[in-house]
């Protein structure tokens, strides 16, 4: 293992332990790591956007002759007018463009590609093969989707049939949230195992090259 590789391992180990130190209590070492992490994350996006958007999608095509791209370029620059209170209203046009296009995408692709597709996948034939198990699963899905939608329907008081269906909906929602919680915890634990493995194997393993 080279000296540079050992240095890299120690850098990672230092920041890993510094961040873990917060579990004891807030301390200057944690704050140093936290602020460096925040800065690096912001800098990461600058590099990413500069390369994949500004250069690849704006500058290069524009130099190649697609001069119409000057319009989104100007709209993008107008965003920075927000830093000047007197002229901050200028950035509204850029923001309105973003909101308008996003709204157009939502209305068409969300309704066509999401709502209709999800509804189509929900309404499966009970006799489509797969036996009793598949039919039961289809019924569970239909009941689950309808009751969940009714639970989130607040235009009418949840009494009578609507109330019973909403009650079934909340049971389904609790099952889903419980499953999601379980998955999230296990995902985080898996990351924790990864960090502990790094410290135990790579970092402590590097001791023999130093001491």
């Amino acid at each position: 293992m080279s000296g540079w590789e050992i240095f890299e391992i120690w850098v990672i180990a230092f920041f890993t332990l510094a961040l873990f130190s917060f579990m004891y209590k807030d301390n200057p070492l944690y704050k140093v790591a936290e602020h460096i992490f925040a800065g690096l994350s912001a800098g990461y996006y600058v590099g990413l956007i500069w390369d994949t958007v500004i250069i690849t999608q704006l500058w290069d095509p524009m130099i190649g002759g697609d001069w119409l791209l000057i319009v989104p370029g100007i709209l993008g620059f107008l965003m920075f007018a927000r830093f000047f209170p007197k002229y901050s209203w200028v950035s509204r046009t850029s923001l309105a463009f973003v909101m308008g296009v996003t709204s157009g995408i939502f209305i068409t692709s969300q309704l066509h590609g999401l709502v209709l597709k999800q509804m189509q996948a929900t309404m499966q034939s009970l006799g489509g093969g797969g036996g009793f198990g598949a039919a039961l699963l289809s019924i569970i899905v239909v009941v689950g989707v309808i009751s969940t939608l009714i639970y989130f329907y607040f235009s009418k008081e949840h009494t009578g049939v609507l109330g019973v269906t909403a009650k079934v909906g909340i049971w389904f929602i609790m099952i889903s949230f419980g499953a999601h919680f379980g998955y999230t915890v296990m995902g985080r634990v898996s990351l924790l195992i990864g960090r502990v493995q790094f410290l135990a194997e790579d970092w402590i393993g590097s001791f023999k090259y130093i001491f």
Partner: peptide, 24 residues
């Protein structure tokens, strides 16, 4: 693939309808 899927679909459909109406 049953209860969890159903709830996710319900939430997706509801959120997409809400987003579409807000977009309009």
């Amino acid at each position: 693939n049953g209860a969890n899927l159903a709830v996710q679909r319900g939430i997706i459909i509801g959120a997409a309808l809400g987003a579409a109406s807000m977009s309009l």
